[in-house]
Design a protein around this nucleic acid. Structure first.
Lengths: 263, 263
DNA sequence: GGGATGCGTTTTGCATCTAAAACATCCGCA
DNA sequence: TGCGGATGTTTTAGATGCAAAACGCATCCC
């Protein structure tokens, strides 16, 4: 613990402590008293009193039903959702995708589900060799794409059924699922593995690793994938390098979106 | 402005200012520089520097792409989310709202009264078509909203008068009540009907059904509503389907809160 | 080129925020 | 009832956060 250690003379301890009060109250299952807070923070009651006084006055915490105990106030909600509203997932993802491209040497992409399509939001092209033709704004059918299976992987039975309702599923390659049951099997596989590695699904001689990105509710909101010609991959290191790196990249983006679950 | 005026000797100014920095960054459309923040807060740059230093170190704000400008960081999201999770009503209502969404095919929302605002606590979006822009954390003026009228419907004469005290009521649309008497008429109507059906009150081409949720004392504590574009509704079945389903959903939530009165 | 402006950062003396200690309540228990 | 301990609040000496001023560095503009 003790994230303090006030390294710098520029620190404002009152601010740091006040925010810790908010986080502690947020993590607590029940309303806390002044003394509870002071104990938890290893702080004098008088100091805790001043922090609580200020936070209560500002509406960031409020008295619970039981006298002299406190919970978070509605005003904290504004902060969290102001953050969400100004969240362009593309700008959050950009540096991570660039880093993944530099580390793996192959092209990286971010995509989301738009209706029944996978929509490419942005790419970072490999610096050498083959250049993917998947550019920003491209759409492909979700049911027929490994990325699509990733994007559908947080849907439950009913939601997946609704997605498939009235959906024509012509076979595009030998890998294309052509029924709801087959699609569900693919999606379940993603859920179990946490990623998809595909070789030659879309184009002969091309491979790809795709991993879901989740938001603060755990819902899949986007997909990170790397792709390139077989010549760009070292196939001995798929499981030891490409997959873990891509997963780590997706997790970093998920964390910035507030995802708190397991990797 | 100046919500300061540091009334009490117990105030922690550093905390108050730091939280204002977060709110200002949350309200800002673009990343702000240190000087922007100092100007906005009417504070010396050196003080702003110390606040920004502390907040950045803690992860509550982060540098934007452009050097020396800042936006909210992911850590603020945890606060808002913690607040939502602590409200028992949100977890009680969640499955019911999801079921109502599945049954009606349109988006469902839960909201409460916060001061003079309607505060949206959670939504379940329709699976297809139009997606509402009313998302969690959104606030709208209660007097000017059908949901607001629901939330005010258990207030008696005196409480409603107190609510209106000093309240400016500019007309937002032709449906907006602009006097206490008009607002009271709306609220009385909700009390008599037990629900509100509105068409085009907020946005042209959008419709909504709102129903109050009551706690064990019979007091209105929240509001369930369904909303969507006119194209998402079957207008022949408003009274025979949408209204009774929404009422049934609200009643189920009320029952779980201990409400024993009539539906 | 130069001087003017605006920026982020550092310094520093003074004002003020902090926290130990004292005080005032409250509660449980015998 | 009276004691013991825990709580919320106030006081106050002294540590320390604050902001004016200074600094160094960009950028701009005639």
């Amino acid at each position: 613990m003790s994230e303090s250690a006030n390294h710098s003379i520029y620190f404002v301890p009152g601010l740091q402590r006040g925010l810790r009060v908010l986080e502690i109250l947020g993590a607590a299952a029940e309303p806390m008293s002044l003394s509870d807070i002071a104990r938890e923070m290893e702080l004098s009651r008088s100091s805790a009193f001043r922090l609580v006084y200020t936070l209560r006055y500002m509406g960031f915490i409020k008295e619970a039903e039981q006298k002299n105990t406190f919970t978070l106030g509605a005003r904290v909600l504004n902060l969290g959702f102001a953050y969400l509203n100004q969240l362009p997932i593309t700008s959050i993802a950009r540096p991570h995708l660039a880093a993944l491209r530099d580390k793996t040497g192959v092209s990286t992409h971010l995509s989301v589900l738009e209706g029944h399509d996978v929509l490419y939001l942005g790419s970072h092209q490999a610096r050498t060799g083959f250049v993917s033709n998947m550019v920003t704004g491209t759409r492909v059918d979700a049911y027929a794409s490994a990325i699509g299976w990733c994007l559908l992987s947080s849907l439950d039975e009913a939601e997946l059924a609704a997605f498939c309702e009235g959906l024509a599923m012509p076979a595009k390659t030998e890998h294309t699922p052509t029924s709801v049951a087959e699609l569900r099997a693919r999606v379940d596989q993603v859920r179990a593995d946490g990623h998809v590695f595909s070789r030659g699904f879309h184009e002969p001689g091309g491979s790809s690793v795709a991993v879901p990105v989740r938001d603060h509710t755990g819902k899949v909101v986007a997909c990170v994938n790397i792709s390139g010609p077989d010549s760009g991959f070292d196939f001995d290191r798929i499981d030891t390098f490409y997959v873990p790196e891509t997963r780590a990249c997706a997790l970093r983006i998920s964390r910035e979106l507030g995802y708190g679950g397991p990797g």
